[in-house]
């Protein structure tokens, strides 16, 4: 146990180190201001993988690590769509996920935002429309913003969320 406590002490605050990374902080703080105005300081995101290769999920995990720590700006991921302000959808929508995505969308209380993350969700990417895939997310549910990239980097993800928040009337 002592060794663990020691390791924690020596690791220190990684998040502070990134304060030097102006981009993350600038984007994060800008998000925080928008979230304060429109969402009472807290933006709850429910993610749905509708047919991704899991690359986007890896980067979504990354924005939660100590370096980006987007929760400090009021952005957090929730387990239930009923608790969510925003759906963050990855992948093309596979035919086998079409009903599940629509049901998840229906379960998010209005007003709701939908973000299509990654090239697949934005425009079909490498998979497009086929017997197995409905293609882009907007072919299945209304989309408010797209974040291109394969996969989008954590910074692109943050930038995409900010752009949408600033666009919101």
């Amino acid at each position: 146990m002592l060794s663990i406590l020691n390791k924690i002490r020596r690791t220190g605050h990684l998040t502070e180190a990134v304060e030097a990374d102006e981009q993350v902080v600038k984007l994060g703080k800008a998000c925080q201001r928008e979230i304060a105005v429109s969402f009472g300081g807290s933006l709850a995101i429910r993610m749905v993988d509708a047919g991704s290769c899991n690359g986007c999920e890896l980067e979504m995990h990354a924005v939660n690590n100590s370096f980006y720590d987007i929760e400090r700006y009021g952005i957090h991921f929730v387990a239930s769509p009923r608790h969510a302000d925003m759906l963050l959808v990855t992948g093309v929508v596979s035919r086998h996920m079409q009903a599940a995505l629509k049901r998840t969308y229906a379960a998010v209380p209005a007003p709701k935002l939908v973000v299509a993350m990654g090239d697949c969700a934005a425009n079909g990417g490498e998979f497009g429309v086929s017997y197995a895939s409905c293609g882009a997310v907007e072919n299945v549910i209304p989309v408010d913003a797209v974040i291109p990239g394969c996969p989008p980097t954590p910074l692109q993800l943050l930038q995409g969320i900010l752009t949408l928040l600033q666009k919101k009337p």
Binding site: A50, G51, G91, G128, S133
Partner: peptide, 22 residues
Amino acid sequence: GYVHKGIEKLAEGRDLAGLARL
């Protein structure tokens, strides 16, 4: 099977560069 995207079918007819991307 929920994220079945038809990868095997999509590969057919691609050139090698396209196959590598897929």
